[in-house]
Amino acid sequence: MAKATETVLEIDLNALVHNYRYLRSRIRPETKFMAVVKAYGYGSDAQEIAMCLQKAQVDYFAVAYVNEGIALRKAGITIPILVLHPQKVHFKTLIEHNLEPSIYSHAILEQFIRTAQELGKLAYPIHLKFNTGLNRLGFTYADLPKIYTATEAQHAIKVKAILSHLAATEDRNETEFTQLQLNRFEAICNKAETLFGYKLIKHVLNTSGIINYPNAQLDMVRSGIGLYGYGNDATIDADLIPVVTLKTIIAQKHTIPAGESVGYNRKYVSKKPTVTATLPLGHADGIGRQYGQGNTFVRINGQLAPIVGNVCMDMIMVDVTEIECEEGDEVIIFGKKLPATEFSGTADTISYELLTGISQRIPRVIYKN
């Protein structure tokens, strides 16, 4: 990959395909694979990610909101797309773009049926979302008879799939709770298929679930963070490759005398002569203030340089006193040589937040074969 000449987010589609094939190898050949590409493809480029994965023959995509699904359709995605959190106001456009909604409440179900009827649809596919313990969205087991009555009284929509969301599949201390969720979901699925009288596509596992609970893969699995190179477990991370690398350059170097401060609010005061490098990115680019004041490091010429003082809106300063470097040299914020898990962990947050928070003003550079 080329040396950076500005702040860029490099996206390695070869790494993406590697991760997909690895995760695919952890499930049965007949199990469907849903790739989660919400939030700009976890902060990368959803259209490029989806087009690559469609060529790699994933079975499904998932997005959070309708506009994300529409963007994929306009980019040429033809396989099924599940919208995880559809809003009533967007039901018409959802149907017009052949997206599949996750229906999680009676009010949402009733409105979607009305919209599908108004558009003259017949057996339009929906997924039913059940709450098994995350307590965020979803029907309960007790709702099944009412759901069945509502859906059987019309022909505009048809239940295609049933799903739930596990809360702690990456946490080995929560195995008992995860198994409780899986047992609840099994009971819901059995009751639903008995009521509807046909087989539903059942999906509940996320990335960590694929790794830790393979017996619960059912008909389809969903993977988000794993596709982008992070498996919530150091042993799994070793088999994955980070897809994105955030790079920038040294814009200017300064020699700071002892007793001088650096940055806003004088949060860093040098105890000895210090050489700093200013980098052209900041909290407007997704590198929040929590990473400043020595909490976090970047990589310059193979060495770690701590961030000093407060992170600014468009700039950060790092200590390069012990590093041989010049203005214009490349700086790795995170990526293959400095994982997002390591960078984010210094500020007590997670790779998901770091990746999805990278600003859209940063140019994306795509690498693929």
Results as ranks from 00 to 15, higher is better:
residue 204 V to W: 03
residue 278 T to P: 00
residue 248 T to G: 10
residue 167 A to G: 11
residue 265 N to K: 15
residue 175 T to I: 14
residue 216 A to P: 03
residue 217 Q to A: 14
residue 276 T to D: 06
residue 236 I to V: 15
residue 204 V to Q: 07
residue 192 A to T: 03
residue 273 P to C: 04
residue 210 I to P: 00
residue 268 Y to F: 15
residue 193 E to S: 08
residue 236 I to F: 03
residue 207 T to Y: 04
residue 233 D to P: 00
residue 176 E to R: 13
residue 302 G to W: 08
residue 281 L to G: 05
residue 223 S to Y: 00
residue 177 F to R: 13
residue 302 G to Y: 08
residue 227 L to Y: 05
residue 169 T to Y: 01
residue 211 I to T: 04
residue 226 G to M: 05
residue 194 T to Y: 09
residue 221 V to E: 01
residue 204 V to S: 07
residue 208 S to W: 02
residue 206 N to V: 02
residue 214 P to E: 01
residue 195 L to D: 02
residue 295 N to C: 07
residue 184 R to Y: 14
residue 225 I to T: 09
residue 241 I to F: 10
residue 273 P to Q: 10
residue 249 I to C: 06
residue 267 K to S: 14
residue 216 A to R: 00
residue 189 C to P: 01
residue 287 I to D: 07
residue 229 G to D: 04
residue 242 P to E: 09
residue 221 V to G: 03
residue 291 Y to P: 01
residue 170 E to P: 00
residue 181 Q to T: 09
residue 244 V to I: 15
residue 240 L to V: 11
residue 263 G to N: 06
residue 212 N to F: 13
residue 227 L to R: 02
residue 214 P to V: 03
residue 224 G to E: 03
residue 214 P to D: 02
residue 209 G to A: 02
residue 258 A to M: 05
residue 298 V to L: 09
residue 196 F to I: 04
residue 211 I to S: 03
residue 302 G to R: 06
residue 262 V to N: 04
residue 205 L to R: 04
residue 246 L to P: 09
residue 283 H to D: 08
residue 285 D to H: 13
residue 278 T to I: 14
residue 175 T to V: 14
residue 258 A to T: 11
residue 215 N to R: 11
residue 178 T to W: 01
residue 231 G to H: 08
residue 203 H to I: 05
residue 289 R to Q: 14
residue 207 T to C: 05
residue 287 I to R: 05
residue 271 K to V: 01
residue 269 V to P: 01
residue 184 R to F: 12
residue 290 Q to A: 11
residue 256 I to H: 08
residue 243 V to G: 03
residue 239 D to V: 00
residue 230 Y to E: 07
residue 288 G to F: 14
residue 270 S to M: 08
residue 200 L to M: 06
residue 286 G to F: 10
residue 173 N to V: 01
residue 247 K to G: 02
residue 239 D to E: 13
residue 276 T to P: 09
residue 274 T to Q: 02
residue 216 A to Y: 15
residue 231 G to F: 06
residue 250 I to Y: 05
residue 272 K to W: 02
residue 235 T to L: 14
residue 290 Q to I: 12
residue 184 R to G: 11
residue 225 I to V: 13
residue 302 G to E: 07
